[in-house]
Every structure is written in structure tokens, then in C-alpha cells.
Design a protein around this nucleic acid. Sequence first.
DNA 1: GCGACAG
DNA 2: ATCTTGTCGC
Length: 218
Amino acid sequence: MKVKFPTNLVEAREFQKSIAVKVSLKDTVRKIKRIGALDVAYKGDIGYAAGVIYDLEEKEIIEKQTFSERVTSPYIPTFLFLREVPLFLNLVKKFTNDPDIVFIDGHGIAHPQTAGSATVFGVLWDKSTIGIAKKPLRPFSYEKTKTKNMDRIFIKDRLVGIRYKVRKDWNPIYISPGNRVSVNTSFEIVKRNMTEKYKLPYPSQVAHAFSLEAKSIV
DNA sequence: GCGACAG
DNA sequence: ATCTTGTCGC
């Protein structure tokens, strides 16, 4: 798919609007066998993107890939996709295994324009993606659920994700659909892949560690 | 009007 | 995200 990537913030906002109308929150994935996870580490203006694919049946990481490139867009809240999505699109070209769904560090639809990194990437690649962030993006509001450690995240009266407090004394994580998955399923999949020691799901942990490794072993 | 604001 | 010392806690 050919895409003319935005070159300034005005174009970027229009781009996000065009992405937002293409988002699907339907659960298209029947059975999840492989989960992908992507993350980026930086050294100066070089971004080191790392991706892993976790096989749920084998219970192991079956593939790891990296892609690094100079990143010129500065970090501006709500415009993170300008920095990371180009790296992700190049990185996933290297995958020989096709993931059923992909975890992305950052927000999906829990974003002012309904178009966080996980959503932009998910729509462009036409893949199921889930955004997992450590901090919320304003404006937002919460609504309690029956479960004590999870709250619904709302943006302008629209359910956009789940705030999940993995451990009582840990800061919560913010889970939202990127594309082709519902809010509830996003939460269930992430919850099902947690480990005891970290607040991020296993595939994300490995992707994060791998990006740091890729950054330092240069 | 100013400030808050993923990684 | 990254830059960084000591320090608190399991």
C-alpha cells in the first residue's frame, strides 16, 4: 500500500483524521497463535526499532528483528506516530512469520484524534493491533468497573480503552484497541499475557529489552 | 489566556 | 524516550 506520509503538523492532523475513519473495532481475529510486539529505543536521533513474535502454543519467541533509521520528527504529544510508525512499517517487512495481532507501545484509539501510533500503524498495515501505554493522553475520564483494578477510559463519552492496575503498588497501564479488535478483547489478550515481574505483557517486555540491546550493541 | 500531553 | 547517584525495598 502506498501512503504519502505527512511532512508537517497540519498534514499530520489531516492524516490522523483520515486514519480515524478507517479504524475497525470488530474482533476479526478468530484464534490467536502468534502475538507480535514492537518497541523503539533511541540514541541521539537514531531510532532502533525492535520486533518480536511470540508463539502461544510453543510458548516461546520464534522471531526477532530490528530496523534502525535516523528519526527527524521531534516528539510532540499526540504526534508520536510521526516518529515511530515509519520505523514499524520497515521493521515488519522483515518478519517471516505473520502475527495475528501486534502489541505497540503507546496508545491506540485512546487518543484525542482516535489515532494513536497503534491505530495509525494498524490501519496502514491492515492488521489487528493493541496500544499499551504507561501514561494517559489528555483529555480523558474514567468509569469504575466491577473489577477493582480496571477502569474504563472515556474520551468525549466514548469508550476507548481500559486502565489496568497490574499490581497494587504499581502505576497502571493504559490499554486501547489499535485496529481490528474491540476494547474488551484488547484487555483480555493483554491480561492473558502478563507475567509476575513486569507491568507490561511478556511480548512487550521482550521487545523493549531487545530494542535497548539493539541500541547498545551498535 | 496558559497549561496539560504516549515515546 | 534519555540523561544519571544514591537509595529504598523485596
